[in-house]
Amino acid sequence: MSTLHLRCGDDLRDILPRAGIAGDYLCFSDPVCVGPARDEGDLIAWLGLRARFVALHAGQDVGQVRLRLGREYTALNGLHRHDAVHLWFEHDLWDQAALIRILSLLAEKRQLRGRLWLMPADGLRSFPELPDAALAALQPAPLTDLQIEQGAEAWDAFSAPDPRALDALTRRKLTLPFLAAAMRRHLRDLPWTVDGLGETERAVLRAVAAGAATEGQVQAALRAADAVFHVTDLIVREVIQRLRSGPKRPLLAKDPLRLSPQGEALLAGAARHRPAPRAQGGVPVLPDPPWLWDPRLAGVVHDG
């Protein structure tokens, strides 16, 4: 029996054989939970969009990134050559965003029906944190048609410029166990009605206010406080750079990390942040953002 292990990273490539788990390995490395994700169905345009973002995000050559992403997306077309495809995706936003991107591309591939299996995550630990014996004992569950359909639906909503469909989807009972919580965490990184900060931006400012003076210390604080969005060092760096830009920057420009008077005022509830232009999935974030997260309603609202 031919088995393929599909994972949004290379962190299990050497661990699975060590745990006695046989099969080929495919890494899907597109970090779709960050950066622009406006998807209009043109894969060539999509690869160009994502390659430019990933290259800038990671400080890599855009041509090399484009080739790597192209190989990975192309490899998804060959999954039917395997008797079973085991999907190793955990509870956090990084994994869940990658999972729904992949399911959106596989939803119409009828030859894969009965070949897709979801590995059980416990909602607390990442797979690489498990002992080899615990990994080997995991039993995959067949991915149902409804799970595939809901994953594709979630991707359509995630990549749309209007976030209300994604907000509504997270309020339903979903068959993918960790999807709703991850997507709500994604939506909470829209600017908030109360101060204009997204949740990760506010968490960075609070970590610095509590004494974090380096990117590493900020990352450790954020990971300890948030089980749903496991930020990487590059995500932390990008958020810090964002908060260090503009005439009313919340963070001072020089190391060590320190709040500016604007940052202190934001945390005290005495100022409002005007975010620099960026994309939150398919949603445009602007200095006067069209879409906001309202913590009183625990949902998205349109400004104007």
Rank of each mutant, 00 (worst) to 15 (best):
T3M: 00
L6F: 05
R7F: 01
G9A: 07
A19C: 10
A22P: 11
D24Q: 13
L26G: 02
S29H: 05
S29R: 10
V32K: 05
G48P: 06
G48L: 12
A51K: 10
A58Y: 15
V65D: 04
R66Q: 15
E72W: 10
Y73Q: 13
T74M: 13
L76Q: 03
N77Y: 04
G78W: 08
D83L: 00
A84K: 13
W88R: 09
E90Q: 14
H91R: 11
L103I: 03
S104M: 06
L118Y: 04
M119V: 09
R125W: 03
P128R: 01
D132C: 06
A133P: 03
L138Q: 00
P140F: 09
T144I: 09
I148D: 01
Q150L: 00
S159G: 05
P161N: 01
L166D: 02
T170L: 04
T175Q: 09
T175F: 00
P177H: 05
P177W: 01
P177K: 01
A180G: 07
A182Y: 00
R185K: 10
L190Y: 03
P191K: 08
P191F: 11
T193F: 07
L197T: 02
G198C: 08
G198R: 06
T200H: 08
T200Y: 07
A203D: 12
A213Y: 01
T214V: 02
G216T: 01
Q217A: 15
A220Y: 07
A220T: 14
L222C: 03
R223F: 01
A224I: 04
A225H: 09
A225Y: 08
D226I: 12
D226E: 13
T232D: 10
L234A: 15
L234M: 14
Q241N: 11
L243W: 03
S245E: 04
R249A: 15
P250N: 04
A253Q: 13
D255N: 15
D255P: 10
R258K: 15
L259V: 12
L266A: 11
L267Y: 12
A268L: 11
G269M: 12
G269W: 09
A276T: 07
Q280D: 07
G282H: 07
P287E: 02
L292M: 05
L297C: 06
A298D: 15
V300K: 10
D303W: 11
